[in-house]
Every structure is written in C-alpha cells, then in structure tokens.
Design a protein around this nucleic acid. Structure first.
Length: 420
DNA sequence: TCTGGGGTCCTAGGGCGA
DNA sequence: TCTGTCGCCCTAGGACCC
C-alpha cells in the first residue's frame, strides 16, 4: 500500500505557524519580485484568487478583502519541510521525498492493521510536532494514491484528511469522480486532447485502447492508465543526484548594461556551484541565457542562449565565471532591456569519478583545496562571507520583497522572543 | 507599469560510423 | 568505390510536476 502525504497550502501553513492570528484569514504567498501568487489559503481560494495570478491584476480584490500578503521566504519553507520529512521518515522508513511539500510512503512491509487510523495518527503527529496540516491518500499505486489524496483534501469534513482506496468498489467510484485534468501526469495539453475526443473522466480514460494512448500521450500516458487500474508501473524512487542544476531570476528593473548583467550572472554561478558541491558533483557544460520581457507587446522579444563546453569537469565558480564573462563580452547586444537571465549547469558527474584531462588550464588539486576552505569559512561565518568579486555578495539585491517574514528557524536574530 | 523558479522525461529528427 | 541500411548519439522541443 502506497501513501501520498501532502502538506496543505504549504507556504501559507509555514507562515501561519509563527502567526497563528492568521488562521481563518485569507493569506497569499507571492513569487520572487512579488510578481505572482504561488500559494493561497483556503479563504484566499474562496475569494477567487487563482494560482499563478499576477498580483497587479487582483490588487483591488486583495485590498478590498484585507488579504494578507507574504513575499517568499524559502529559507523558512525549506527548514519546515526538512522537519516534516524527518518526522515522516521516523514513522515510515520506506519514503520518497517527492517535493518540498509532498512525500510517498510504502507501508506494505509495516505491520499496519488499520490504514485509515494509521493515517489519522500520522496527521496528528505532524501537526503536534511542526504545526503543519497534512492530507493523506492511500492506494495500491502512486497515481491512485494521488487521486485518494485529492479526495481527502476536497472532502475534509467527511474524510478528516485521510482517504484509503482499498477495494474495487472504491476505486470505481474514484475513477468516476476524477476529471482527466485532475489525474497526476495529465496536464493542460493532454486534457485538451482528451476532451476533444470526448474523454472527461478517469473512468473513460482507462477504457481507451493502449495503442491510442501510446501514440498520442507517449509511454507515460500508458503507465498512467495502468496505475489507475491498480497495476504498479511507478516505483518509489531513492534520492538520486540532480542531472542539471539551474539558477535564474526575473529582474524587477530591467538590466540594460553588461556590467550589471555580469554581476547577476556571477551570483547565479556562485549559487549554482554551491548546489553542485553540496551534492558532490562536477559539471562540464554551462548554458547561459537571457531575454527581454515577453509580456511587453510593444517590443520584439529577444532571447539569447550560449552553451559553453568546458575542457574539464569542475565545480569552481571562478573558473566558470571567467569563461562565461568572456562569452558575455563577445555576445552582449547593446541597448536591449533584459527581464530575466539564468544559467544551467549540466553534464554532471560525481566528484569520485572525475579523471582530470591531460591538458587543461585548471589546477585541480589547488581548486579542490580552495573550494573546501571557502565552503568552510562560509559555513562558519555565513553565506557569502567570501564571494566572487564580480558581485557584492548581496543576494537580495534589487529583488522586490516587501512582505518578507523573518527566518524564524534559520537565523539567530529572527528567533521569536518570549517575555516571561 | 506590474506576469516565478527549478526540475524530469520522452520523442522526433539529423549526423555519422560500421 | 559507391550506395543503402541500421543503430547510436545528440539536440531541440514539448509535455509534465511541484
């Protein structure tokens, strides 16, 4: 039996842990630059604020209903997520952490007598220890567990946040209830295609011939069909290192000069190589890109992308920044207004398997020692104590975040004080 | 005026060597 | 030596997820 645990309105719930006065009030969390809505409380959903909505389009509704706004505080959310996952692992060792707010558990080999009661106790435990409300769906496959979770969330009063699909009858009811757009793995495009062919519910989807599904929705579509029928096609996965690492940002004020762009890109490289070193990997290919504002219909959109193949594997920001800056100087189009830029590190290998090439300007032994020292200093005295000269070490620079909450659990100066 | 960020997987199609 | 076929590799693009 597989369970899917999902934290309810996760980012909003994280903010509410330290602001219990906001329970019952409409709350939203915004994306970087306070641009779009990325999390909503139930009350905000009821007001009709959609996911991904640009804030400026809903300004009136937000003000009229006193909706509480937060800028994203990923330090806080990451830390709370870690606590939730830690507790879940304690109770269910066979776990796949799927995202910041979701995890699959396999309880087949745990001696669980009553799955529903087990779910309720897990829910109670997480809320008691971390203060995060969760919903749980149990079923024989991942896709069905996702569907069960949806039911648990949608009918909280009846289910108390836990729903188990443990017989054919329940499975049939769920397939009849579930719309195709709500099936895990079927997005906007496939929904359009299915609707056009008269398929609206999961029960109709599973009746489609295999050949049709494979031809129109690839092998993944076929796996979804069998999972809905209760035949396991997707296993719980171990944590595997990332195959690519990227850092990108939109800019509140568009960038028009190469100096500033170089500054930002250098910061992206520093952040990305930090992630790379954390998972003990090296990269040999860097993709750097930037583009103008696609929403500005008055100007022709410009997109530039450069792929840089290194002659060696590295996780050293100085080496990468040097190469990227050289390319930037050569390719930069003067006069364009850059709205977003980013870098992707790819072609990753594990540090262990690295064999330095015979001819390269990079001095490997020295670089390893240097990076180790820098990481130790930054870990002891704070992120960016030592950083690339190209940026000033201010990672929040020029990013709009007017509603940022304190880092209650990760910053000594933000810890809540209690008067006794 | 203002519209996020970070990933994965699959497939088609072209280049290229055996 | 030329030509056709097959399979592998790579890339771009499109789908999906949170």
């Amino acid at each position: 039996m597989i369970g899917l645990i999902d934290c309810n309105n996760f980012y909003v719930s994280c903010e509410r842990i330290f602001r219990p006065d906001l329970i019952g009030k409409p709350v939203i969390v915004l994306s970087n630059n306070d641009g779009c809505v990325i999390a909503r409380s139930e009350e905000a959903k009821e007001l009709g604020i959609p996911m991904g909505a640009p804030v400026f389009q809903y300004k009136e509704l937000i003000e009229k209903n006193n909706v509480i706004i937060f800028s994203p505080n990923f330090n806080l959310y990451g830390d709370i997520s870690w606590r939730v996952m830690y507790l879940l692992t304690e109770k269910c060792p066979n776990i796949e952490i799927y995202s910041i707010d979701e995890a699959f558990i396999d309880i087949t080999h745990q001696n669980v007598k009553n799955i529903y009661e087990f779910g309720l106790s897990l829910k109670k435990y997480i809320y008691k220890c971390v203060g995060i409300p969760i919903s749980i769906g149990f079923a024989s496959t991942k896709v069905l567990a996702k569907a069960a979770n949806k039911i648990a969330k949608k009918f909280t009063q009846k289910t108390k946040g836990v729903y188990v699909i443990d017989n054919e009858w329940k499975k049939k009811i769920v397939l009849r209830y579930l719309s195709v757009e709500d099936i895990w793995g079927i997005g906007k495009k496939y929904t359009e295609l299915l609707n056009k062919n008269g398929i609206f519910k999961a029960i109709d989807f599973v009746k489609l011939p295999d050949e049709w599904i494979k031809k129109n929705m690839t092998i993944n579509g076929l796996k979804i069909k069998y999972e809905l029928l209760g035949i396991k096609c997707l296993e719980l996965e171990d944590e595997i290192p990332k195959k690519s690492i990227s850092v990108s940002r939109s800019f509140h004020n568009e960038i028009t000069n190469i100096k500033e762009l170089k500054e930002r890109i250098s910061l992206f490289i520093e952040l990305a190589t930090q992630k790379l070193r954390n998972q003990k990997s090296l990269c040999s290919t860097i993709i750097m890109y930037y583009h103008t504002n696609y929403f500005n219909k008055r100007e022709k959109p410009i997109y530039q992308q450069v792929t840089i193949f290194l002659d060696t594997y590295t996780n050293c920001p100085h080496y990468i920044a040097k190469k990227v800056n050289k390319i930037l100087e050569k390719n930069f189009i003067n006069g364009i207004k850059i709205k977003k830029a980013g870098i992707i590190l790819t072609n990753l290998i594990s540090q262990e398997y690295n064999i330095p090439p015979l001819f390269t300007e990079l001095k490997h032994e020295e670089q390893i020692k240097l990076m180790k020292t820098i990481d130790e200093i930054n870990s002891k005295y704070g992120r960016f104590t030592i950083h690339l000269a190209a940026h000033n070490g201010n990672i929040r620079h020029k990013t709009l975040c007017e509603h940022l909450s304190p880092c209650y659990t990760t910053n000594w100066s933000d810890i809540i004080r209690v008067k006794v």
